[in-house]
């Protein structure tokens, strides 16, 4: 097998997004978040700081949270990506989304898609997190409106909903 040669040519990227196989074209330098938004038309994932600090672009790759602004689209070849568009079941919000609405876990909503995906991973790993655990896990998702009180309450409410207690 001869070694691959580096190239800046556009290439076809095929991946699974929210359970459906999707394809698009990306330059090697195209960031995954821009590929999702502009090539696949999934604008639910937001672009914030564009250097991996704010967490607005959080999506899930092969079941784990990542920051889509610091992963290249070409690196997601063959991966399974989950975005905010995959959460609701038609008109029915996902329990985490319901909890954010009920507990005022958002105001302007810019950070919310990334926040919700991060919370989904948190609650999969830890079904009943303490306030400290919630704050530590979400420390990489910056919200400039709420002061986080509503977000913490929303995560606790979502945990109860997912446990069938609410």
């Amino acid at each position: 097998m001869s070694a691959a040669q580096p190239s800046d040519a556009k290439r076809l990227v095929t991946l699974t997004v929210n359970g459906l196989e999707r394809s698009g074209v990306a330059e090697p330098r195209t960031l995954l978040v821009d590929f999702l938004r502009h090539e696949l038309g999934l604008t639910g994932t937001h672009v914030g700081c564009e250097h991996g600090v704010c967490g607005a672009c959080t999506v899930r790759m092969d079941g784990e949270p990542i920051r889509a602004c610091i992963v290249l689209a070409v690196q997601a070849q063959g991966a399974s990506i989950e975005t905010i568009e995959g959460l609701a079941d038609g008109e029915a919000l996902h329990p985490i989304q319901q909890a954010f609405r009920e507990a005022h876990g958002l105001q302007c909503g810019f950070c919310t898609p990334g926040m919700v995906l991060a919370v989904q991973s948190l609650l999969e790993e830890n079904a009943d997190p303490s306030e400290q655990e919630i704050r530590e896990y979400l420390s990489g998702n910056v919200c400039r409106c709420t002061g986080y009180v509503g977000i913490v309450a929303a995560v606790q409410r979502a945990a109860r909903k997912l446990a069938g207690a609410e």
Binding site: A4, P6, S7, R29, L31, E50
Partner: peptide, 21 residues
């Protein structure tokens, strides 16, 4: 729609291939 400057990219499949590159 991108931030990084243009670069050439390839994936190495083995350490030897990466070292050759």
């Amino acid at each position: 729609r991108v931030k990084p400057p243009r670069f050439r990219y390839c994936e190495a499949r083995s350490v030897d291939e990466a070292l050759a590159l």
